[in-house]
Design a protein around this nucleic acid. Sequence first.
DNA 1: AAGGCCAGTCGAAGCGCTTCGACGCATCTA
DNA 2: TAGATGCGTCGAAGCGCTTCGACTGGCCTT
Lengths: 337, 337
Amino acid sequence: MVTLAEVAHHAGVSASTVSYVLSGKRSISASTKDRVERSIRELGYHPNAGARALASSRSNIIALMVPLRTDMYVPVMMEIAIAVATTARTHGYDVLLLTGEEGPEAVRRIEGSALADAMILMDVELHDERLPLIRETDRPAVLIGLPADPTGLTCVDLDFVATGAQCVEHLFGLGHREIAVIGEAPAVYERHTGFAERTLDGLRTRAGELGVRVLHRPCEGTYDALAATLARIFDERPGTTGFVVQNESAVEPLLSLLRRQGRAIPEDVSVIAICPDQVATQASVRLTSVAIPAQEMGRQAVERVVAKLRGQDVDEVALLVPELTVRASSGPGPAKG
Amino acid sequence: MVTLAEVAHHAGVSASTVSYVLSGKRSISASTKDRVERSIRELGYHPNAGARALASSRSNIIALMVPLRTDMYVPVMMEIAIAVATTARTHGYDVLLLTGEEGPEAVRRIEGSALADAMILMDVELHDERLPLIRETDRPAVLIGLPADPTGLTCVDLDFVATGAQCVEHLFGLGHREIAVIGEAPAVYERHTGFAERTLDGLRTRAGELGVRVLHRPCEGTYDALAATLARIFDERPGTTGFVVQNESAVEPLLSLLRRQGRAIPEDVSVIAICPDQVATQASVRLTSVAIPAQEMGRQAVERVVAKLRGQDVDEVALLVPELTVRASSGPGPAKG
DNA sequence: AAGGCCAGTCGAAGCGCTTCGACGCATCTA
DNA sequence: TAGATGCGTCGAAGCGCTTCGACTGGCCTT
């Protein structure tokens, strides 16, 4: 392994000079700099991460806590994770992947061992156990998601309240007055995951204002579960003509079941999904949808965490504005009787 | 931050003693051990990762290189990644998430900086650029996937040749003699990703032996792309009665299109998928499938990498035996005429 | 011409840990 | 009873880097 000392010797300078060339923290003459940089290249030098971390107490690592459960909103998670990793690299950071399994203990471990300089938490619950720890630590942290009380925390999330409202408005605008919401799996609500509840809030509030009836049903993403849910919905509200789907994996089953029942989309029923654009455009009907900007969320989380590491101030809560794209799955509702 | 020295002082022993309690590399009396462990707990001590890495030249980190592309076989990748992270933790390792973006350079960087003790590579191409580097380094590495020449490498993968063969055998056993294969997106083949080509090999070879006609068509996972592909298939081979689907996202569109065309599953056509069990059971028809054991692959990759880190010998290539589960999407083929 | 200043460089002191050799003491062996 | 053996512990020497203070020479002031 090539060391700083060897580079220094090769370039005929002292170790500290090489270090300053690398960090740019002191001015170095152009000629020296050139020589050092050439030596670095010729020897194929890479600074030792451990030594650097020890000496500078900065590891250049950002920890990313992803949910353990792999059964829900997987594409979104994956997209965020990859966006986080690539964005982090552009700032010189690497990403440490932590699963939710360790729980709050992971936060303590990272903090104590100085393994990472900062943390990004995904899948934040309304009353997340990790939050007290995050508030105490002076290591920067950014949440992807919005807890019940974001005081003192930095959060990045889609504005799910507005998202819910937009869905209702769109359907209302088309003439729909009875809407069913196919929600996430019941477990998501039991865990009080922020986004699910907030979407619902937005939906209900706006529906109340507009005089639209809303029926919400959590639902697993399986075909069978959806069939049962759908049956119950039409049983309870036969006049339902609009659907809002929050559970990605429920999209195809829903379309397929509606078709089988002879309900045409969008002639008889309109469907609007809350999902990444990719899902919306790949579905068997091009779906009207509000996009979940997964990449953007990952990117922004990193930008914020890096800004904090630089000591810059960062707004506490950044809510991305939802964008609704009209595609082929929504159309005029029933003529008023 | 609590340091080793503080723990030592608190427990009334020397720093090295605390270190030996932690590592167990020398025997320590029960009473001393107790005292030290109590001090550790009371002070909430966590060893500094950088210092430890520097002194021991082991970082206790495993690097995981995931593909950059987020558009393909995402659930499989995510499951593997999470399995890797959780399994690694049980062995005391953390996982560093690298995207394919950096390419071979990432291998050099990790190697040079001693950031990770070992690497796990996903999404291995047949002639992957990273392989020469992996072969040279003495840092343990495990591939998830199988390159053209695995000499000197440790690989974990599903036996995709056998997988392809099993699919053909199953359909042949049911009486099907004309089979269409809905493959991965063309890009996957262009990159010569191992698993896709190997599956095809297995399919074709066994089909040749059994006298089954096989038509292979790469296909994007969108509804439209699949509709076009399907049309061409039936155009070219009207007698096709069996489908093998390798592209997860093509599953639902295929089922839906077949239904629309009035082809009943499994009465008129049989469909068999190569996908995680979860996908197979959630589809609108419970799919006969050969499972992609994503978690198992992640787990085994870690076990192997950890074994290598301990200096144990590890078989070069571990191919998991594919398991076909018969569900509702496959049935007797056309009566022989 | 003397003083001050700054850019450019160096030396040395750690950062917190692991690990090697050494030491003291008790126990065994011959 | 002398020497060998082993266990449990300690001190000290790094691991490879960053960073602080100090030094040197040139250039600007006055």
